[in-house]
């Protein structure tokens, strides 16, 4: 197993423990869930346990404070690199090979006062971060549950007032051409939302 893959697998594994809480999860189940061979899971588990990222109390896996911190960093980086500041072309190449990739939240409308709220949002996600997508990536006709909105207080409040509160169920009705607005069905009525706003609303798709 390469080091890169290994680094990626640890947070995925932590995500898995995190959502399942005190539920017993066999190694086989975890391997199936993550789509990796059994041996990989075993290696990851031993390394993570050595680093005190989780505790194993009679096969009940529990995430530690240190593990939570690692999880948060992973989630933050995941959201940033994948959805907020997606690097393309040469920038992506540079970011990968320069190694350190700084999280420039201030560029995206977050300041010191609301970054803690953002961390709270990340903690409050129901499920694995890998399941979360921006509203714009939902397919037409698909259902999703709102997890959090990313942005300043005023923008988030406006969306919440229109019914886009965490936990609300939405159906994507329509997508306009290119990076056009989308139309969603929420709380019994239809809302049109511009692309720029929709891409900062994060949802967890669910099977309808």
């Amino acid at each position: 197993m390469s080091i890169r893959k290994f680094e990626e697998l640890i947070p995925c594994f932590l995500e898995l423990i995190n959502i399942n809480g005190a539920k017993k999860l066999s190694i086989q189940e975890m391997a199936d869930e993550l789509g990796v061979p059994l041996s990989d899971i075993e290696t990851v588990m031993s390394v993570a346990q050595a680093n005190e990222l989780f505790t194993n109390d009679q096969d009940v896996l529990k995430i530690t404070e240190k593990g939570k911190e690692a999880l948060r960093i992973h989630r933050e980086k995941y959201v940033h690199d994948r959805f907020i500041h997606r690097k393309r072309g040469i920038h992506r190449f540079l970011a990968k090979h320069k190694g350190k990739n700084s999280l420039d939240w201030h560029k995206h409308g977050l300041n010191n006062s609301n970054i803690s709220n953002f961390y709270q949002n990340l903690e409050g996600i129901e499920g694995r971060i890998e399941e979360i997508i921006p509203l714009t990536q939902l397919r037409v006709g698909e259902k999703g549950i709102v997890q959090f909105m990313f942005g300043g207080r005023g923008k988030v409040q406006r969306l919440a007032d229109m019914g886009l509160t965490p936990g609300a169920e939405i159906i994507l009705n329509k997508k306009a051409l290119l990076r056009g607005p989308i139309e969603i069905y929420i709380r019994n009525s239809c809302l049109a939302i511009g692309f720029g706003i929709a891409k900062r609303i994060f949802v967890k798709p669910i099977d309808s």
Binding site: N117, Q120, N121, G124, F148, M149, Q157, T165, R187
Partner: peptide, 15 residues
């Protein structure tokens, strides 16, 4: 408690 900013939590309660 809610894991979201207070105004959103209150909006959610109101809804």
């Amino acid at each position: 408690i809610h894991g979201h900013i207070s105004s959103v939590a209150i909006a959610a309660e109101r809804y």
